[in-house]
């Protein structure tokens, strides 16, 4: 008798969980996906003395990869893009051209990655980024360059 009661109770509990889980699963699949990306437009040039804008300290090491060509880095513009799936975020580059990021969605899995299409004046990339991931696009123009840092914040 006790065993029957236990089984019935367990079955009821499982049924309740199943009923509750199904909508949750559906919600998880249909929940609006959003990515917040930080885009920084950086001017790079060759100067008599090396100088990195203090606001770029967190990527100074990466910028130094290009120190043979450029040693002065200045933050020109900083923009945070909060994008839903399919939305395009546009950031103006130093020459007025557009740097366009389209959020394509999150990849499936426990550690979702943001899948984005990035369009610069010279190329188009499709990439996925983990939170904290960052790319730098360098667009040389004569003795100067525009560098665009794109990072996936959340």
């Amino acid at each position: 008798m006790k065993c029957d009661t236990f089984l019935v109770g367990a079955a009821a509990l499982l049924a309740t969980l199943a009923v509750g889980w199904a909508p949750m699963a559906v919600w998880a699949q249909t929940a609006p996906q959003r990515a917040v990306l930080a885009v920084r437009v950086i001017g790079a040039s060759k100067a008599p003395a090396a100088r990195v804008d203090p606001r770029l300290r967190d990527i100074e090491r990466e910028l130094k990869a290009f120190q043979s060509d450029f040693n002065e880095f200045t933050l020109v513009r900083e923009q945070q893009l909060s994008l839903d799936v399919g939305m395009r975020g546009v950031v103006k580059l130093t020459d007025g051209a557009d740097f366009v990021v389209t959020f394509l969605g999150l990849t499936p899995g426990p550690a979702a990655r943001a899948r984005c299409k990035v369009e610069t004046p010279r190329n188009v990339q499709t990439l996925t980024m983990a939170i904290g991931g960052r790319t730098l696009d360098i667009l040389p123009a004569g003795d100067r360059a525009t560098i665009v840092s794109t990072s996936y914040e959340r």
Partner: peptide, 8 residues
């Protein structure tokens, strides 16, 4: 070289 991508 017209462009480079630096991936952290």
């Amino acid at each position: 070289a017209v462009a480079a991508w630096l991936v952290a």
